[in-house]
Design a binder for these strands. Structure first.
Length: 421
DNA sequence: TCTGGGGTCCTAGGACCC
DNA sequence: TCTGGGGTCCTAGGACCC
């Protein structure tokens, strides 16, 4: 076949060429890359949290699952190696993953710590390789240079590429050309499709849609009539029509919100106790915001009942802040409105929205002066927290939460107070 | 898996305004 | 004063992701 007709064929099969890359048991993979003697063993990461966060395929084969307690794992599978997680390392591996993929395309989306998408459309001519060859090279480079394996899917849309990488884990390699989509989708159950969650697959199953093929073969008209935007978009992508572009994250810190939520034990119906947990979350969220150099103007707080009912409320401040006091004042008002003494609560949370860099805040001279003092104070607070740990300094309103959290650790060390039981 | 934590985006329905 | 009908904006909560 001539080069020209080969190119035409490739063009037809890949109007766009999208790759999805997924690290296999990524956290464990990173650990094994530096501890190769553990390869082939049952390995679990998550010692510091007391539950399995990630596990090797050998551990999975034994029956270890996500969230299983370390205590139980030790008891039932004493040979399993238990490691603490090391997020800084995983972040470094993750960045290297993106760099390596970046050799083959400048359109790489760092989707999560262990996943990325790449749009390699047109790179076949630049690199003088077929799309499949490019994909194989990427996988080869990742596997050999990072010392852990990756699964890769190559197809014409993000949803299809993601179905591909998922198809044969670990170390999978799946190419789904346009002419192969229908056959491929017959073997993909509807619940496995990216962005179709439990609710989506429930409602689709009720309509006798069991595989991705069943959905893809419905008409546009039918989907538009019976389903909302998310399913409509997935339907298009399954048919090879690109809806979700590959977006490279150019800017660091383009985060839209910061959340801090925590479930407490025992559950509580005591308003001052529950508010104290909320207060602690607000303090933590503000500390993270300051670390990122951001400030927030709109925020929402919520409480969740024992039976998982969610009640919340939103507040708009007059100007941005990165300090907890103003937020707490408003949060108190919302809290008093939404708290119901007859219910028992399990979780509180705060979400800080409309984030802006601190430098972009607009303030009057007077406010500026007021906040300089506060800024200095919080510099000190942040420094102490860095040195002595996050519970070293806190607001009075968070006191009861701290005491409760720390009780679980038996004792607390507060520099100014000594040890409190 | 009777349920952890941090994110993003969508939408139904109320409030408000002609 | 009562009434219809339509548009936009907002937000609480849900669904989904890793």
């Amino acid at each position: 076949m001539s080069t020209i007709s080969q190119n035409t064929k490739e063009q037809n099969e890949f109007p766009r060429a999208i790759i999805h890359i997924d690290g296999d048991a990524f956290f464990v993979g990173c650990e094994l890359a530096s501890k190769p003697w553990l390869k082939g063993e049952s390995v679990v990461v998550g010692a510091e949290r007391g539950i399995a966060c990630a596990f090797s395929y050998e551990a999975k084969a034994l029956g270890i699952h996500r969230g299983m307690s370390i205590f139980e794992i030790k008891k039932r599978y004493p040979k399993t190696v238990i490691l603490s997680s090391n997020y800084l390392d995983y972040g470094m591996y993750s960045n290297r993953m993106v760099q390596i993929v970046g050799r083959y395309s400048n359109k790489v989306e760092h989707y999560s710590v262990d996943e990325c998408f790449a749009d390699i459309t047109g790179m076949n001519e630049v690199l003088e390789m077929s799309y499949e060859e490019i994909a194989r090279n990427i996988k080869h480079d990742l596997d050999t240079e990072l010392g852990t394996t990756f699964s890769l899917g190559l197809s014409v849309t993000k949803v299809l590429a993601k179905c591909g990488s998922k198809h044969k884990k670990p170390s999978g390699f799946m190419v789904v050309r346009r002419s192969e989509i229908q056959n491929f989708l017959k073997n993909v159950s509807i619940g496995k499709v990216w962005r179709i969650g439990t609710e989506g697959s429930k409602s689709l199953t009720r309509e006798k849609i069991f595989t991705a093929y069943d959905l893809a073969s419905k008409s546009d008209e039918w989907v538009r009539r019976n389903h909302s935007k998310p399913i409509q978009e997935i339907h298009s992508e399954l048919n090879g029509i690109n809806i979700f572009g590959v977006h490279r994250h150019e800017v660091e810190g383009d985060q839209k919100s910061i959340m801090c939520t925590r479930t407490f034990h025992p559950f509580s119906r005591d308003p001052s106790q529950v508010f104290s947990y909320l207060s602690k979350n607000i303090e933590e969220a503000c500390a993270r915001m300051r670390k990122l150099g951001l400030s927030s103007k709109n925020f929402s707080v919520f409480i969740k009942t024992k039976d998982f009912r969610y009640i919340g409320g939103e507040v708009k401040l007059l100007r941005e802040t990165s300090y907890p006091e103003e937020i707490l004042n408003e949060a108190r008002k919302v809290f008093d409105k939404i708290f119901d003494c007859d219910l028992i609560y399990r979780t509180t949370g705060v979400r800080l929205g409309s984030l802006k860099p601190i430098a972009m805040q607009t303030e009057s001279l007077f406010e500026e002066n007021k906040n300089i003092g506060k800024g200095r104070m919080y510099d000190v607070v942040d420094n102490i927290s860095n040195k002595f740990g996050e519970h070293s300094v806190f607001l009075g309103s968070s006191m009861r939460a701290i005491l409760r959290y720390e009780k679980d650790k038996k004792k607390i060390g507060i520099p100014s107070l000594g040890e409190v039981r």
